[in-house]
Amino acid sequence: MKHKTFFWFFLPTAMAMFLFIALPLVSVVSQSLHVPHDKVLITVENCDPFGCTSQTQIDHTLTQALYEADPLGQWAGLGIYFDRGHLAIKEVGEMWRGSSGLGDFFSTLKNLPFYRAMGFTLTFTFIVTPLVILFGFLIALAVNSLHQRLKGLMIFFSLLPMIVTPLIGSLIMFWMIDSRGIIGSMLQILLDNPELSLKASTGLTWITLIIYGIWHAAPFAFIVFYAGLQTVPKETLESAMIDGATRLQQIMHVVIPHLAPLVAFVALMQLMDNFRVFEPIIGFNAEAHATSLSWIIYNDLGGETRLLSSAATTSVLTIIGISILLAPVLVRTWREFNPQE
């Protein structure tokens, strides 16, 4: 294809991605380096028969003038990055000096919103991802050994938890684990503890969110591995069997090596998706016990005061986090596409 033809074919999609992904990205970075201008305040005296009161007001014309002179706001440098709501360099330094040991240091670190969110995001990502792979693989193995007709039925129902909107899926779960809901009240009976509430403690909330995460993503791993199982070379399996390999040995030495590239693919997708965990926290109403980086951005952006600079800073930090997480995978893709180097 000629360069010119390529250009015209690719132009619409390139424009869309440039205008609504690349430019906003630049805007986010620049916002994170600026703070809004201070409102210009003036004192006005109101006098009436009972005396004079002075009142402080915002001078809108002067404030407007500041924004016209410098529409981005005041240059803040890395100031927002280091403040208490984000990396909190000063506070962390104080905690480090004041703490008696590593454990103590980490437990005080949890009081800072950014590190609290980071803690949950990373825990969620690194517990859910391997368990999704394991669970998806087990379902795939089990379903693959079923009768042909049952397979279709299983795939149909397995797709549901994944396809349903995360917010809606987590709401459905949230109602079931409510202390008056079916799972919640069953657990109370089973554990003989009428006061038990899965929403009350941080630990139980984290476990609930993690189980939800696995429930939501396991179907994806299952479908991918199931497709992979259909292409396992029969000859290799048969020769392994003739050589006396047990079922477990066949899986360990033939099936799993065959699926290895798929495991890498699922891990890549899961790392990306779990790092942005957000909707379940809203659905489970769990922000008192668990917050994530995406949740902080959402929280800053919502409400009456839209804290754009603060949200932008967390966004940049999130993007940096995800690049660190995915760097090894990107390097691998790069090598695959460039085998000659």
Binding site: L301, V316, S323, T333
Partner: peptide
């Protein structure tokens, strides 16, 4: 590759860039 990097960005990180 650029598209893959864009795919990895959580959409919510772009929202503060849209609002202004």
């Amino acid at each position: 590759i650029i598209a893959l990097i864009f795919r990895a960005l959580p959409p919510i990180t772009l929202v503060s860039g849209y609002l202004l």
